[in-house]
Nucleic acid binder design. Structure first.
Length: 274
DNA sequence: ATAAACGCCTGGCGGC
DNA sequence: TGCCGCCAGGCGTTTA
């Protein structure tokens, strides 16, 4: 599943290929993908040039001359750059045809991905970006602010890490890895957390995400290469998808359990509930 | 107010 | 080999 490091990698890869290309036409094969007004979506994108691509949490933001195309890859969304003459792919749901004969194909087996068109004035003040919490490297993301926000709640550490309204960009893979780095059980109740632990949680998060970005993200079953992208962080995973393998710290076997209704990997010996 | 449960989707996989 | 049912899970919506 593409999370922040994968989306950041896709963003960098896309920037090399689509910047300054002009959209001549838009083809939509699966209309449910588009969550804003459908006729307006195609109409607004047409004849615009992609000036920049940014990222906010797990969203890609295609910056146009006027307005923005938002894209969320959810579980399996991918982009492919192909000549327009190439046949439609099996799970291709949307295509941007550029004026130079190339085309950007959006491919998504499970159709969970979403797209929106947004005007400048509403980009950050409307759904879906208005609900997002801190970017992982935002200087305003301080231990005190996160402590104040999470301390009163009865939630588990993992559900807090997955909550996009607190810090945005973390998904199931990195939540497990951050819990391991912090040496806390994913079901650890954050009502017990200390400010010092929050501080450590933030540094674990930043270290984990930065390392993953450096390595081009993780290529796992639900997320393989696109646009020539091959992540290498999957080789660095300490616990996620490692059930039965020895813990890198103590050699006891990694376990798989369910926390927050999600498959969760941990070392019960190294990661404490208190 | 908060949190758990559900629905959206399809392919891969284990079991028989 | 082939079929069936379960599982993966981000996130918006619904329910408790």
């Amino acid at each position: 599943m593409p999370e922040l490091p994968e989306v950041e990698t896709v963003k960098r890869s896309l920037k090399k290929r689509v910047l300054n290309r002009k959209i001549a036409s838009v083809e939509i094969f699966y209309p449910n993908l588009v969550k804003s007004d459908l006729p307006l979506f195609s109409e607004k994108l047409k004849d615009q040039t992609i000036k920049d691509i940014k990222r906010r949490g797990k969203f890609l933001i295609f910056c146009l001359n006027d307005g923005y195309l938002l894209s969320h890859l959810r579980m399996e969304g991918k982009y492919f750059m192909l000549p327009q003459a190439e046949a439609k792919m099996k799970h291709e749901h949307l295509r941007l045809n550029f004026s130079d004969g190339m085309s950007l194909r959006y491919h998504d087996v499970r159709k969970f991905g979403t797209m929106h068109y947004k005007e400048q004035h509403e980009l950050f003040t409307s759904e879906p970006l208005n609900k997002l919490g801190f970017e992982y490297d935002d200087p305003a993301l301080t231990p005190q602010r996160i402590y104040d926000k999470i301390k009163p709640s009865q939630r588990s550490l993992k559900s807090v890490l997955l909550d996009q309204t607190i810090i945005t960009g973390i998904g199931n893979i990195y939540a497990d890895e951050i819990c391991f780095c912090l040496k806390k059980h994913p079901a650890y109740k954050v009502s017990k957390i200390t400010k010092k632990t929050v501080e450590k949680m933030l540094s674990c998060m930043q270290a984990t995400l930065n390392k993953a970005i450096t390595l081009g993200g993780s290529s796992v079953r639900t997320y393989k290469d696109t646009l020539g992208f091959h992540g290498r962080f999957q080789n660095e995973l300490n616990v996620h998808l490692q059930a039965g393998k020895p813990c890198p710290l103590c050699q006891s076997p990694i376990e798989k359990i369910t926390v927050s209704n999600r498959g969760t990997y941990l070392c019960r010996h190294c990661q404490k509930k208190r």
